[in-house]
C-alpha cells in the first residue's frame, strides 16, 4: 500500500429501531477512500448507501452505528465524542445532499449560511467572512455573487441552490466531500453542470469525493472506484472501468443490463431483474440477492457468501467464485477471502 487511505470504513453496521424490532440497514460494509480519489457507492433503494454516508458524519436521525469502525486519517470516529465529530463536520468532512431546495434554511440569506459555515470552525471577522462568501460563490460559478449573497434560497433555481451547497461544503477546504445523490433532483442539463463543477472543485482543491448515487451513468462519468451495494451489503467493488465492463457479481451484471442506453434494441424486451428490491427488514436469508438471481445455486439460500477478493482491489460477494477456492470449511459472511 503506497499510503494509508484517508477514510477507512470497516465492517460497519447501522441499526434502526422499528416497531418490529431493530433492523440493520447497513450490515458489515467496508471500503476505503484515498486522498484525492473519487469513490462511488452505488445501489438501489434500501441498499444502505445513504445511511452509510450519514452514519460517517454522525448525522443519522434515529439509527445508530452498532458495530464496526470508521477511521479518518487513523482517527476512530465510531464512538468519538459528539464535540469531536462536530469539529470534523464541515472542516474535514463536508457533505452535500439530494434536494437542494430543502437543504438550505429558507429564513436566512445565502451569505448568512456561508458565513455561519466559515465561522463555525475558525475565528473570523464578520466582514472578512462576508468577503470570503462572495469569493466562494464566484468560485462555484454563481452568476452575480455580490448580489446573490444577499438572496434567500427561494430566489435561486435548483441548480444555483446546489452550487451554494457546494460553496458551503468548500468553506473549510475539506479532505473529503460526501455527495449524496447530488444531481438526482436536477434536470439533466443542470446535472451535467453540477457534475462538472464537482470535478473542477475536486481537481482544484485536491479533495477526495465519496459519491453516493443510484445512477450507473454518473458513476461511469465521475468515479475512479465503485462500491456496489445491495440490501445493506457490499456485493462488488473495484475500479469503475473494470466493474462496469466486466462485472463479476450477478447483481451488478443484471443491474447494468437493465439500464436503457442509446444502444438498447427497441424491438426486444429490456433485460430486467425479476422481483423487487427488498427493504432491510425483509432481506432474505442466505445471499440477499438469491431470490432474484439468474445464476442462483442451492447453497445461496442457505448461507451468505463472503466478499471474495478476486485480486487486490477487486472483490465480489458470490458463491460462484467459490469454485476457484480449494476445498475447505465454508467461510463466514463478512470475512474477506482470497481467490487463488
Amino acid at each position: 500500500m503506497p499510503s494509508p487511505p484517508l477514510l477507512e470504513v470497516n465492517d460497519l453496521y447501522v441499526r434502526f429501531p422499528t416497531p418490529a424490532g431493530p433492523v440493520n440497514a447497513v450490515a458489515g460494509v467496508s471500503f476505503t477512500v484515498s486522498a484525492g480519489e473519487t469513490v462511488a457507492v452505488v445501489g438501489e433503494s434500501g441498499s444502505g448507501k445513504s445511511v452509510s454516508s450519514l452514519a460517517l458524519l454522525g448525522l443519522l436521525g434515529s439509527g445508530n452505528i452498532s458495530a464496526g469502525s470508521v477511521l479518518l486519517r487513523d482517527e476512530e470516529l465510531v464512538g468519538a465524542a459528539p464535540e469531536r465529530l462536530r469539529q470534523l463536520r464541515g472542516s474535514e468532512l463536508a457533505m452535500i445532499f439530494q434536494n437542494p431546495m430543502s437543504s438550505l434554511d429558507p429564513l436566512f440569506t445565502i451569505g448568512d449560511q456561508l458565513v455561519e459555515a466559515l465561522r463555525a470552525h475558525r475565528p473570523m471577522a464578520r466582514r472578512a467572512a462576508r468577503a470570503r462568501a462572495v469569493e466562494l460563490l464566484r468560485e462555484v460559478g454563481l452568476p452575480d455573487p455580490e448580489r446573490r449573497v444577499r438572496a434567500y434560497p427561494h430566489e435561486l433555481s435548483g441548480g444555483q441552490q446546489q452550487r451554494v451547497m457546494v460553496a458551503i461544503a468548500l468553506t473549510c477546504e475539506p479532505a473529503l466531500l460526501i455527495a449524496d445523490e447530488p444531481t438526482t433532483a436536477l434536470d439533466v442539463t443542470v446535472e451535467a453542470q453540477i457534475l462538472e463543477l464537482l470535478r473542477t472543485m475536486q481537481r482544484e482543491h485536491g479533495m477526495a469525493l465519496l459519491l453516493i448515487t443510484h445512477d450507473m451513468a454518473v458513476v461511469a462519468e465521475m468515479a475512479d472506484r465503485v462500491v456496489v451495494m445491495y440490501a445493506g451489503r457490499v456485493v462488488e467493488q473495484g475500479p469503475v472501468a473494470e466493474v462496469l465492463r466486466s462485472p463479476r457479481n450477478p447483481y451488478t451484471r443484471a443491474l447494468i443490463d437493465s439500464i436503457p442506453t442509446p444502444a438498447t434494441p427497441r424491438d426486444q424486451p429490456m433485460p430486467a431483474i425479476a422481483g423487487s428490491v427488498p427493504t432491510p427488514a425483509e432481506a432474505p436469508a442466505g445471499c440477499r440477492f438469491h431470490p432474484r438471481c439468474p445464476s442462483v445455486l442451492d447453497r445461496c439460500s442457505e448461507a451468505e457468501p463472503p466478499l471474495y477478493e478476486l485480486r487486490p482491489g477487486r472483490a465480489s460477494r458470490c458463491w460462484l467464485h467459490d469454485g476457484a477456492l480449494r476445498a475447505g470449511p465454508a467461510p463466514a459472511a463478512g470475512e474477506v477471502h482470497h481467490v487463488a
Binding site: 458524519l57 448525522l59 462536530r86 469539529q87 470534523l88 463536520r89 464541515g90 472542516s91 463536508a94 457533505m95 445532499f97 437543504s103 438550505l104 434554511d105 455561519e116 459555515a117 463555525a120 470552525h121 451547497m165 458551503i168 468553506t171
Partner: peptide, 8 residues
C-alpha cells in the same frame, strides 16, 4: 441536516 453538516 445541512446546518449540522457544517459543524455548527
Amino acid at each position: 441536516r445541512t446546518v449540522r453538516a457544517k459543524g455548527v
